[in-house]
C-alpha cells in the first residue's frame, strides 16, 4: 500500500514538473469562460427580454430552455471534457515518447501498480480540471446570469449536485485518456483520435443515432452521451429533444468508468507490459 501511495505521489510529481497541466488549465478556463459567459448573456438576455426574441433566429423553436443555470454550468463538462482526456492521453503517451518508462519501471518494476497509480492520479487531476472548468462556467456564467437578473441558483442543492457530478465526470474522462494512451501509445495518433472523436465523430454519431428509437438507445451509451447523463444537463440534449430517455446519472457514470477500465486493461496487455526497448 505504501508502495502504491509512493507511485501515486510520483505520478503527481510527473504531472506538476512539466508545463502541460497549467497550459491546458488556462486554455480550459478561457474557453469555458467565454462560452458560458457569452451564452449566459445571450440566453439570459432573451429570457429577460433585454434581447428581443425577434432579433434571434430561434428557428421557430421554443425559447424555453429548462433550467438555464444548469445548462450554462454544464458547459464545464459537456464542452470541457476534452481537456482531461488530452491530459490523460498525453501523460501516458509521453512515457512512451520520451522513453521515461525505463526509469519508471526501474524504480517500480511492478508495472500494473504503476498504471493503477497513474489512473488514480489522473482521476484526481481530472477532477481538478473540473474545478477549473466549473470556476469558469459557474463563476463567469453564473455572474453574467446574476447581472441580467436571472437567479443563478447558487444556493440550490441541484446546482451543487451538478457540480459534484461534473467533478466525477471530469475525473473519469482523464482515466479514459490514460486508457486511450496505453491503447494507442503513439502520441500524435492519440491526440488526433481524441480531437477527431470528441469534436467531430461523436457529436455526429449522437445526432445520427437520435433519428431512430433503437439507435437512440445505443447512442445513450456513447461516452459523451453517458457523460452528459452523469452530469444531468447538456446543450447537446437540447439540440435533439426527441432523443429517447437518457441514462440515469449513475448509469452514465458506470458507462464512463467501463470505457476507462476496458481501454486501460486492453492497453496494459498490448503496450504497457511489453518489452521496453
Amino acid at each position: 500500500m505504501t508502495m502504491f501511495l509512493r507511485c501515486v505521489s510520483a505520478e503527481f510529481a510527473k504531472i506538476f514538473t512539466t508545463r502541460l497541466w497549467w497550459i491546458l488549465a488556462i486554455v480550459l478556463f478561457c474557453y469555458i469562460g467565454l462560452l458560458a459567459g457569452g451564452l449566459a448573456a445571450l440566453f439570459a438576455g432573451i429570457q429577460t427580454g433585454v434581447i428581443s426574441p425577434d432579433a434571434v433566429n430561434t428557428g421557430g423553436g421554443s425559447t424555453d430552455l429548462g433550467s438555464l443555470p444548469a445548462l450554462i454550468y454544464s458547459f464545464a463538462s459537456s464542452v470541457g471534457y476534452v481537456f482531461p482526456v488530452l491530459l490523460g492521453a498525453l501523460a501516458t503517451t509521453g512515457e512512451f515518447r520520451h522513453q521515461t518508462l525505463t526509469p519508471t519501471f526501474l524504480a517500480t518494476p511492478r508495472r500494473g501498480l504503476v498504471l493503477g497509480a497513474k489512473t488514480v492520479t489522473l482521476i484526481l487531476v481530472g477532477a481538478g480540471f473540473g474545478v477549473v472548468a466549473l470556476a469558469a462556467s459557474v463563476g463567469l456564467g453564473g455572474g453574467v446570469l446574476s447581472a441580467f437578473g436571472v437567479d443563478a441558483l447558487l444556493i440550490d442543492s441541484e446546482t451543487w449536485l451538478l457540480v459534484a457530478r461534473t467533478l466525477l465526470a471530469m475525473g473519469l474522462w482523464a482515466a479514459i485518456g490514460v486508457g486511450l494512451g496505453v491503447l494507442v501509445p503513439n502520441q500524435v495518433a492519440s491526440i488526433v483520435i481524441v480531437l477527431a472523436f470528441t469534436q467531430f465523430v461523436e457529436p455526429l454519431l449522437r445526432l445520427a443515432a437520435s433519428f431512430l428509437e433503437v439507435t437512440a438507445t445505443i447512442g445513450n451509451f456513447l461516452p459523451g452521451a453517458a457523460s452528459d447523463a452523469l452530469v444531468g444537463s447538456s446543450f447537446l440534449n437540447l439540440a435533439n429533444p426527441s432523443a429517447s430517455m437518457p441514462l440515469d446519472w449513475w448509469q452514465g457514470g458506470l458507462v464512463l468508468l467501463g470505457y476507462a477500465l476496458v481501454a486501460t486493461v486492453i492497453g496494459y496487455a498490448v503496450s504497457w507490459k511489453k518489452d521496453v526497448t
Binding site: T2, M3, R6, C7, S9, A10, A13, K14, T17, T18, R19, L20, G94, H98, Q99, T100, L101, T102, P103, T104, L106, A107, T108
Partner: peptide, 21 residues
Amino acid sequence: ASFHPGRTARGHLGVYAIAAG
C-alpha cells in the same frame, strides 16, 4: 536518453526518488 525534455534535472530525479521512497 530517457528524459522528458520539459522537466528540470531536479524534477526528473525527484519523480523517481519519490517512487522509490
